[in-house]
Amino acid sequence: MAPSLREGVSQARSFEFLRLGRQAPWLVLGLGLLLGPGAFPHRARAAPASGADPAALLEQGREAYEMLECPKAVASFRKVLAHPKATPAQRVEAYVGQAWCQVVEGNEALARETLQKALEIRPDYPVSPDLSPKLAAVLEAAQRDFRARAKVEIDLDVTARGAPPELGMRVRDPAGQVNEVLVRYRTDGEWREVAAHSEGASLWTARLEGAAAGTLPLYVETKNRYGFVSGREGTAESPVAVRVEPAAVSAALAPPAATGAASGTALTPLAWTAAGLAVATVGAGTFFGLKAKEEEARFNGDPSQFGSHDEALAVGRSAQRNATTATVLFVSAGVLAATSGLLFVVDGSHGPAGDAVEPGFAAAAMPLHGGGLFALAGRF
């Protein structure tokens, strides 16, 4: 018996469903090959995940992503981020996994924001050569955004001085990505590592023990609070060349040290006395000046505030007297300050017993990238 029209349509639909059902695994595999390979670091296939530890949750998320089950994958990655025992590296992978799911769902802008969170933990997260071009482009865009607001910049002195040599540097950290600064330098055929010391105001110094005079290859890395590299100047393959001054030159450029008893003569107490009087005189002049301004404002104000013409004239004369007193005091303070400075200069040119001391002079140039710093030190 020939099938009815309804039965024919039903059979046709069943056939199409079966045909698509046979092709579905290949369609999923094809889309997975387009977006999936390289999305996560290569790893050995683990046993089916069980429990709620971060490693198992990450594996669940990866498997769900590879099957393009993004809602399930994102749920697993979020559990990793909320897990108190998740390591920084696991949190990075969870953020990256979320971002790849967002790319699959067509939300690349949100994926870039999610990748920013991964880069906050690991600023040097690499672009794997196994990533698909689409995922690589999204990650590179996120890296550019991150560097634009959080790039760590390291400016090194080109010369190390002292014994042992000390290297100075300025580290600009706009986003709080610097927890420690490490200097690695090559001497005696091997690389050494030393932690730099923070001097405040973005300045760091490192002592290069064992570094000989001459050209010293080195590179600098900064690390954030998670232990990941957040900034770099030079590499082991392409180090920065820093000049190490001989110890004798560094000593010659250092300011001369004081010898014998404390320097100074009978002029020293006079110099300090004049300086103290200058400060006190400035204070007195300020008092009379403010009083004069107050009386002047009253004199120039509403005439009805005065009971008589004589009272107004008295206020005006008082303002004039106070202004004159303030002027005299300020001039006196200037004279006392100049006298104090002169006494200090004259006193500094003599030793403890009034013996003449040969004025010393030392100069050292400390060039930095993009400019120069010229320091003068000595007695003159």
Rank of each mutant, 00 (worst) to 15 (best):
V346H: 02
A365H: 10
P133Q: 07
L29Q: 14
R186Y: 14
L110N: 04
L27G: 05
R170C: 02
E245Y: 14
S308A: 11
R147T: 11
A314H: 03
A47T: 09
L267R: 03
D157K: 11
A141K: 09
S238I: 08
D355N: 13
A337V: 05
G378F: 02
T324I: 09
T159A: 08
K151Q: 13
C70M: 06
E113F: 02
N224E: 07
E233A: 15
A248R: 06
A266H: 02
H42Q: 14
A111S: 02
A251H: 01
S132Q: 08
A241C: 07
P239H: 09
L135H: 14
F40Y: 15
G189Y: 13
A266R: 03
L20Q: 05
E93H: 01
G162V: 11
G234W: 01
A211V: 06
A160G: 08
V357I: 14
P84G: 01
R45W: 10
E190S: 15
Y95P: 00
H350N: 03
A94S: 00
R112T: 04
G176F: 02
E166A: 11
N300R: 15
P88N: 04
V279S: 06
L81P: 00
V331E: 09
D155W: 07
T215W: 08
A44H: 10
A2F: 12
P217V: 07
L139P: 08
